[in-house]
Amino acid sequence: MKLKHSFFTRRQFLNGLLGGWAGAFLASFLYPALKFCFPPTREPDQVVLPFSDFEDMEPGSVRNFSWGTKPGMLKKRADGSYQAFVAVCTHLDCNVVYLPDKKKFFCACHDGWYDENGVNIGGPPPNPLRQLTVNREGEELIITKKSVE
């Protein structure tokens, strides 16, 4: 049955209503299921390290620390100041290694190279290594996420 001014019949209307309701009902189950599949991210805002662990580093050398679930690297510059990197290749997420004799970071997965300041200089990496801010407060090194500029 269809009224004169109506765009659709009563059956179409009721079917649409029922179908829409069924779709919305199923979607309400999909949302929590999807939510369940994505655990909260765990990248820390800051990491606190005891300074004593890094005090004896040779200038130009590098030592690892844990930046959440990613490896971090603390490098001592020639002037004695510290520089911190997330030691993960910007190409496809492999962990990089620092080669002190070459003064370069190297990613073995696809031959990616970075200079000693983490700038990408060879191979597929599209961006420099992510840098972190290092602050010394008494006997502690505070490594923090660089604020987005």
Partner: peptide, 30 residues
Amino acid sequence: SATKVGTDIPRSVPYVGVWVTKFLRGGEDV
């Protein structure tokens, strides 16, 4: 390492890629 590379590949797809990577890894990282 192979899995890190493989699951990072979808990330390059605009918009949906990040979610695919997160879904495969169950988080930001392997």
